[in-house]
């Protein structure tokens, strides 16, 4: 699904990413951790081709990003859902309209919108908030709307940049559970986060960046694959995580 080979990104005199090499397979759930400025955001922005790498090749969903022309970038981005810490919702539109907007601007038909939007809002648990404006929602609910918007097209890849950065622990667990539910539909999910305890408890693959280098890649095999979302939530709420490898 994602392949980075010797990818570097230099900003004027600064290192964003330094010879990063890794692969993420279809359907994986990957955490991206590291201190501020370690290159997490750079990596995410490279993935949606908002930035161009200085060196190396990136492949996403079978496309070599270098070969995608500027005109094709929007169509490429429809394969990727993106979620941010600050939600990026449109304040003057209702929950329903915010989600529908993603379909409208990518040329979705009215029929498609009427079919897909209620569906995704049910999946994200927002069915009762359709006509609320974003400022009438809690932070967790707003993040759910933003996840719904990112996933309404059912992209094969979902990127989340600090999705729980502004949320309390209990709400964070709900969001992680939702992301895991999406992951279980077959979508590859990549989550950049600072939340070390959450990462430890989730026990998924972890890529750690430091000063633009991949310094740790605890790959697959460390977690139970077919855990239900309810089990996951129960485990996340448990006072402390069981040691790695023990189920």
């Amino acid at each position: 699904m994602i392949e980075f080979r010797g990818v570097s990104k230099l900003y004027a005199g600064d290192v964003g990413l330094d010879q990063a090499t890794f692969t993420v397979r279809r359907g994986e759930f990957v955490f991206l951790v590291g201190a501020t400025g370690s290159g997490k955001s750079t990596l995410m922005r490279l993935l949606i081709k908002e930035l161009e790498p200085t060196d190396g090749t990136i492949r996403v969903a079978g496309h070599d990003l270098q070969e995608i022309t500027r005109r094709r970038v929007p169509y490429f981005r429809r394969n990727i859902g993106v979620v941010f810490q600050d939600f990026k919702l449109l304040p003057s539109r209702t929950v329903y309209d915010n989600v529908a907007y993603a379909l409208q601007v990518t040329g979705g038909s009215r029929k498609e919108i009427r079919a897909k939007v209620p569906d995704i809002l049910r999946l994200t648990g927002l069915s009762t908030k359709l006509h609320n404006l974003p400022h009438q929602l809690s932070g967790g609910e707003q993040q759910r709307v933003s996840i719904a918007r990112a996933f309404v097209n059912h992209p094969p890849l979902l990127l989340a940049d600090e999705p729980t950065g502004n949320l309390d622990p209990e709400t964070s667990i709900d969001i992680m559970r939702l992301l895991y539910r999406i992951n279980r539909t077959g979508t590859t999910v990549m989550v950049a986060t600072h939340d070390q305890t959450m990462v430890d408890k989730m026990r998924r693959r972890v890529l750690e960046l430091s000063r633009g280098r991949v310094v740790r890649d605890e790959a697959a095999g460390r977690y139970a694959r077919d855990e239900s979302t309810r089990d996951l939530a129960r485990r996340l709420r448990a006072p402390s995580a069981p040691p790695p490898g023990v189920q």
Partner: peptide, 17 residues
């Protein structure tokens, strides 16, 4: 600018924006 940002994010084509 927020709308434009979101449109770019979800993959609206240039002319659609």
């Amino acid at each position: 600018r927020r709308e434009v940002e979101v449109m770019k994010l979800v993959g609206a084509s240039d002319w659609f924006i």
